[in-house]
Structure formats: C-alpha cells, structure tokens
Design a protein around this nucleic acid. Structure first.
Lengths: 198, 198
DNA sequence: GTGCGATGTATCGGTCCGATACATCGTGGC
DNA sequence: GCCACGATGTATCGGACCGATACATCGCAC
C-alpha cells in the first residue's frame, strides 16, 4: 500500500480505540521502516514520468511492500508483551491483530489486560470510598462512570478468555441472527511458515 | 501546592480518564505558568536553609500559589470550548472542573461531547455494516465493544443533560442509599467575584 | 469549464511521555 | 542502634507523536 491508503486501512481497523494516525507520524515511520529493511518501495512511481518536470520535489504515490524480514519482525512485535502492551492503546493494537497470533499469546495478553483493568478499578473504588467527601459531585460522577467502564471491560475480557480456553472464536452476543459463529481464527498467512514463539 | 502534591491531587481527580501527568510535563509547565504570572512561588523553601551547602542545585519543595490573574485565566480556560474540548481527554478535564463553571457552559460542553460520540458511533456502525466481511472476528469484536461503549456514553450524557436542564445535580443511579442527592453544585469560589462569561 | 472536495506526500514546531538521576525522610526489621 | 527500603521531592533529556500547514493532482458536479 501507499501511505494514505495504509492510514485509511488502519483507521478502519483501529477506529474503535484511537484517532487516525497523523501524517507527521506516518511518513517518517514509513521511511524508518524502509531504512530498517522491513518494507521496500514496490514499483509505481508517477504515471507521467517520461517528462522530467524539474518542479519541486514531486513524487506521486509511493507504494510499499513488506519484506520477509518485516513479516518476521511484525510477528515478533505482536506476540511479545511488555508493560505497555496492557495500556489502552497498546492492548487495542495487539487485539486488533489477534488473528495473526497463537492462542497462548492471546490468552497471555487478555489476562494481562484484565489484571491492569482490575488494578485501575481498585484505584477508582479507593478514590470513591476514601476521598468521596473531598471531591465535588461532578468529579465523583466521572469516577463512577470510569468505574462502570472498568467493570464492563473486565466482564468482556472474561468472556473472551473463557472463549479462548474453550477453543471457540470470539462470541457475538448482541448481534447474531441465531447462535454464535464458528469462523476460523488465526489463519496461517499464505506462503509463510510462522514460528509460534519467536 | 508543590509539584508532587499537585500531581497526586490531579491523579485522584483525573484518574478515571488518563494516567498520571509525567514529571517531564509537570515541572516545565509549572515554570511556564510562573513565567506567565499565573502562579507565584509562595514561601517555604528548605527548612535547613541557614547553611549554604554548595551542593548540586539543591532546592527542596517549592510551593506555588495561584494568582488573581491565574484564577481568571483558569476560569476562561474551563469555560471556553474549542474542537479539542470534545475529545476523550479534553472532555474529561473540562468535566472534572464542572463544579467551577456555570450551567450554560456545562450544557454546551455536554452537548458537544454527545455530538462527537454520536459521530464516532456512526463511524463504527458504518465499519461494522460495510466492511464486516473484510475484517477478522477479533477486529469486529473490538469494533462492537467500542460501539457498545459509545452507546453507553451517549446514554450517560443524555442523563446528565436532562439533569442539567431540570436544574438538579448529577444523579447517583447505582449507589445511593435512598433517593438521589441535592448537594449544591458550582459554589462560587470564596473571596473572588467570578464573571459568568469571560 | 471551473471550482471544490478527495487523494496524496511532506515538513515543522511544540508538547508530552518514559527513563533516569539524585537527595531526603520516615519507619520497620534485625 | 542502624540501615535498607519505599515514599517524597525536584529536575532533565531524548524520542515519539500530534496538529497545522503546504502543495499538487484528480474526478466530478453544477
């Protein structure tokens, strides 16, 4: 893909957890990835390239392609978990690429996230219990709303964890016409033997 | 307060919406505020100041105090709304200081936030409707969870808006021992005549 | 036929974070 | 008695990211 396209694709995939990636972040990152050898420039520079326009740095549509090394590095990145894996953005990104990981990794990340949210929940309960008099009604309402969100996310995570353990794909509780679904998750990417634990 | 204390205070107040403010942000900001004349250094430098230790830049506990100009500027900041007022962090900060604003401002901000969340919700519905086949089960589950969060927040906002219009303080739906509450909101800060629309 | 919104690459200034350094104080364990 | 360790407290630095902006092309509606 080229940068603009990639941005749209990522926005559709990550739209639920964060805003669109900024250009000031996108293009430098693409150059960094290229310098590292994880992506390469793949054909298609301008259509009207026969004439040399000598204008300002004109370059239209740079299409990139991931390399074998890049694929391997990406597999590592989404499988390995650090402390930042469990914060809001980090978890969202990992989760969005769960279909490219193995079940052990998915379970590890889901449980780490649950632990993190439970800690946040306890912190909020502390504030609501101990500092309730010192805070005004609006601040308290904010904490309550946050606490509610934590509780819901823990339930959500627990459902996902239970499904992973029982080997099912993520459930579709609210929409589904009849029951759940049974589409296969984590299909092996075509033409590439992936190592389970990089 | 001094920096460390302020950080703890803000963490308790904003803990539901964002992580603690980093030191790399806190201390430069305090200096910026001081340079602008919105806060001043207020007494209490070290206790053992009689001896000049000539050590490395030793300065213990700098206590700051807001100035009259700072109070006015703060009142302006929380009352005026730009586009960034309605994103997650911006809205949270404004909401956390709702008790220091008037009802018209509160309503304006709540409705702006609702509009923003409704837009996000429609975006997610679009993705779930149109691009459902292109995305894997985990990505879809992420969108569903995000959509659910949007719907809940809209309901929450609508409740708050209704309460504002009827002149009541924010309701306490889940906890309360008997009914709601009727604590006064937006008390005028003591010893300071605040302008309603700066 | 022309104006305007979508497509597309690019840079720049500024802000914020994460890690780190360093010093003091209180307190509980040995 | 003393000392290790965690909490308190100020400070800086590099790097990542955002928001605004600039500039060019393309398709299409009016």
């Amino acid at each position: 893909m080229h940068g603009y396209e990639l941005r749209k694709e990522l926005t559709a995939k990550l739209g639920a957890i964060r805003a669109a990636i900024s250009y000031g972040s996108l293009y430098p990152t693409l150059r960094r990835l290229q310098a590292a050898g994880w992506i390469t420039e793949a054909a298609e520079t301008p259509a009207t390239a026969e004439e040399v326009p000598a204008l300002t740095s004109r370059r239209g549509r740079v299409v990139y392609k991931i390399t074998a090394e890049g694929k391997e590095r990406f597999a590592q990145l989404i499988a390995q978990a650090g402390p930042e894996t469990y914060d809001d953005t980090g978890f969202g990104v990992h989760f969005a690429f769960f279909a490219r990981t193995d079940q052990a990794t998915r379970l590890r990340i889901l449980e780490g996230r649950r632990r993190k949210i439970e800690e946040r929940r306890e912190g909020l309960r502390d504030v609501l219990g101990r500092a309730a008099e010192r805070l005004d009604a609006y601040t308290l309402e904010l904490q309550r709303h946050g606490l509610d969100a934590c509780e819901r996310e823990v339930r959500w995570l627990e459902e996902l964890i239970a499904n992973e353990r029982s080997g099912r794909a993520p459930t579709v509780p609210h929409i589904g016409t009849a029951g759940g679904r049974r589409e296969d998750n984590s299909p092996p990417p075509p033409g590439e033997t992936r190592k389970e634990r990089p």
